[in-house]
Design a protein around this nucleic acid. Structure first.
Lengths: 339, 339
DNA sequence: CTGTTAGCGCGTTCAA
DNA sequence: TTGAACGCGCTAACAG
C-alpha cells in the first residue's frame, strides 16, 4: 500500500513547514511568489492530493451534501439530481445519493447515516409522512443542518422547499379532459399526507366543481406509483356500472398501467376512456399511444433547491429563513386524451 | 449551531477518559461491565453519534465506496446500484453515486474526486476507453484502491470485473431473428473499444456466419445509446436499395428509435422489419408493440461486484487477484420480432 | 514572509 | 481495568 503524499512530505523535501506548504497550496496572500510556485510544482511532481477528510474534520464542513429520493431509476428524480449537481459541483460539493425505495426504515436510516458522514446539508423528496419522520426532521433542524425539500414535501416550519404548483397542474389537466367532453373523470391519487398528492387531488376536485360537473368521491382511488397498481385500480373501475370516461392519474406509471388494462379489456383509449398522467416521464412521449402528462421541470427544480441550500449554508448564523419556491407546471397534451 | 457531542463530552460527564469511553463504545473486552453499560446509556442520553470523518481519518478507511456510471435514469444501472447497496449497506458501507453522462472529463474528474474523499474502492461501468482513462485507472491501481468494473469494462490487467456473456446474448438474439426468417440483419453497435459492444458485435457476426448467411459490414452502424440516434440510423438503412429485414440493436433505446422511424416511414414491425434490443429496459415490455430484448440480470451483477469488492478490501495485503465473473444473459422474445 | 503550536474527534499504543 | 499521550492531515492563530 503506497502511502499518499501529505503536505508534510513535500514540506520535508523543500525544507519548509507544513503550514507554509498549506498556505502556498491555498494561494494565501502572505507567501512569496517563489515558494508558492515551488510548492505547487513539487506538489504536482509528488502526486499530492488534498485529503478532504482531514480538511473536513478540521473545518467542520465536509463539502458533501446528501440527496435522498424514493428511487433513482425514474427520469424525474434523476433529472432533479442532475440539476442539483449542475449547481453544486462547480462549488466544490459532492453529492451523495440515497434511495429509500419508499421504505420508512431506509428513510430514517439514510438521514442518520448522512448525519454521521458530517454532510453539510440534505436535499430530499420524502416518501412518507408518518410521525416518526417528523421527529427525524426536527432532529436535523436542531443540529442546524440545512434541510431542503423538493417535490414531495411535508409542510414543516422552518424548512424551505421547491415544488411545482401541483394544484394548477391537476386543475389544468382536469379542465382539459372536461374540454374533451369527459363527464365522469376518475382520479388515481396517492398518499395524501404528502403535499403533492393532496394538491393534485384538490386541483382535480376544484376543476370538476368549477365546471359544473358532479364531484364523486367514489371516482377517487389511492395507489402507489407502480404500473401494476394502475392495472389493479383500472380493473376496479371497469367493473363499475356507471364507470368513468376519463382517468387523471397522479403518476405516469399508474396511467400506463391503466391504459394497459383498459386495452386488455377490449376498450379503447382515448375513444372510450381518456387518460392523463403526471410527471412527463420520457415513455409518455415514446409510446405509440403517447400519454398526456404534466411537465414538472425537474432540472430547474434541482437547480433551485441547490441554490437555496447554498444560501442557507452561508447564513448559518442568522435565523433560518423559510423559503417556498413554487414552479409552474406545463400540461403536455398527447394522444391519450385527444378525442 | 449546537455542537455535536463527542466522546470527550461524555467522558467529562462521567469523570472518565475519552479513551475509556471509546473502548466502552466499541465493546472492548478489557472494560468493566459497569462502565460499559454506563457509557452506553449516557451516550444515548446525550445523543452521541460517532463522527465517521474522524474515524476515517484515523483508520484510513472511510467506509465509503464510489460507484461511477454513465447515468442513473436508466433501469439497468439503477438496478445494478440497487444490487450493490443490497450487499454493501449491511456491511456498514455507504455508496456515493457519480454520473459521467458519457463525458470524458467528468469520468476522470469523478475518479479523482472520489480519491480525495478517501473512498475505499470504486465500482464502475466505464463510458469511454480512451488512453487517458487507462492512465486514471493505473493511477488507482498504484494506490492499491480496489477497482471493479461491471458491464462496460476495458480489459486491464489486475482489474476484476462482472459482465454478462454479451457474445452469447447477441448470438442468441441474432439466431432468433434468423429463425424468424430474416436474411439481412443489420446491427446497431456502439463504441467497440468497450468490451460489451465488441462482444455483441462478434456474437452477431458469428451467428450470421454459422447460419450460412452473408455477413455484410455495411449493415453494421455505430451509434450512441440515445433514442434519436436510433431514428437517424434507421433512416440510413431505410433509404438503402437492398435494406435489412431485421435490426439487432446493442441498446433498447436505439431499438426504440429505430421502430419509431420505421413506422414513421409507413413500414411495419415486425412484418416488414424485425427489431430486437438489449438490456430489457422496462419500456420494452410496456410498449403496445413490446420489444424483444436481452435481460442482463443487473441486480445479480451489482451484488456480485460488491462481493468482489469486499473480498479485495480484505486481502489488501496479498497480491491482487484478478477475477472475471461472467453471468449468463437471457433472451426475452416479444412482439417486435415475432412474425 | 515563514515557523510554531494547537486542535478538529477518534482509536491505540504504553504505562500504571 | 483505566489514564496519558500520540497521530491521522490539515489549517488558523500567534509569533517572529
Amino acid at each position: 500500500m503506497k502511502k499518499k503524499t501529505t503536505i508534510y512530505d513535500i514540506a520535508k523535501k523543500l525544507n519548509l513547514t507544513a503550514a507554509t506548504v498549506s498556505r502556498a497550496l491555498n494561494n494565501n496572500l502572505k507567501i512569496s511568489e517563489n515558494t508558492r510556485k515551488l510548492v505547487h510544482e513539487t506538489a504536482i511532481k509528488m502526486n499530492y492530493e488534498q485529503n478532504r477528510l482531514a480538511l473536513a474534520l478540521k473545518s467542520g464542513k465536509s463539502f458533501n451534501v446528501g440527496v435522498i429520493v424514493p428511487r433513482i431509476d425514474n427520469h424525474f428524480f434523476a433529472s432533479v439530481i442532475r440539476g442539483i449537481e449542475d449547481v453544486l459541483y462547480p462549488q466544490g460539493y459532492h453529492v451523495i445519493i440515497c434511495q429509500t425505495h419508499d421504505q420508512e426504515a431506509l428513510e430514517i436510516g439514510n438521514i442518520n447515516s448522512l448525519l454521521n458522514l458530517q454532510i453539510d446539508g440534505i436535499l430530499m423528496s420524502i416518501s412518507n409522512a408518518k410521525l416518526e419522520h417528523i421527529d427525524s426532521f426536527n432532529n436535523l433542524l436542531k443540529k442546524n443542518v440545512p434541510l431542503i425539500f423538493f417535490d414531495r414535501t411535508k409542510d414543516i416550519k422552518g424548512v424551505s422547499s421547491v415544488t411545482i404548483d401541483d394544484f394548477k397542474g391537476a386543475y389544468d389537466t382536469t379542465k382539459h379532459l372536461i374540454d374533451q367532453g369527459c363527464k365522469r373523470i376518475a382520479h388515481f391519487s396517492n398518499d395524501r399526507l404528502l403535499e403533492i398528492f393532496k394538491n393534485r387531488y384538490l386541483g382535480y376536485k376544484q376543476a370538476i366543481i368549477d365546471n359544473g360537473l358532479e364531484f364523486d368521491e367514489n371516482l377517487v382511488i389511492e395507489t402507489t406509483s407502480k404500473v401494476e397498481e394502475g392495472r389493479k385500480a383500472a380493473r376496479l373501475f371497469l367493473d363499475m356500472a356507471n364507470g368513468p370516461d376519463a382517468i387523471f392519474s397522479s403518476s405516469d406509471f399508474v396511467a400506463l398501467g391503466a391504459i394497459q388494462e383498459i386495452k386488455a379489456q377490449g376498450l379503447r383509449v382515448p375513444e372510450d376512456i381518456c387518460v392523463a398522467g403526471f410527471a412527463n416521464e420520457p415513455f409518455t412521449k415514446f409510446m405509440e399511444l403517447s400519454i398526456t402528462s404534466v411537465d414538472q421541470f425537474p432540472l430547474e427544480m434541482g437547480r433551485t433547491a441547490a441554490q437555496i441550500f447554498l444560501e442557507e449554508v452561508k447564513n448559518t448564523k442568522e435565523k433560518r429563513t423559510e423559503k417556498k419556491v413554487v414552479l409552474t407546471p406545463k400540461l403536455i397534451i398527447r394522444k391519450s386524451s385527444l378525442t
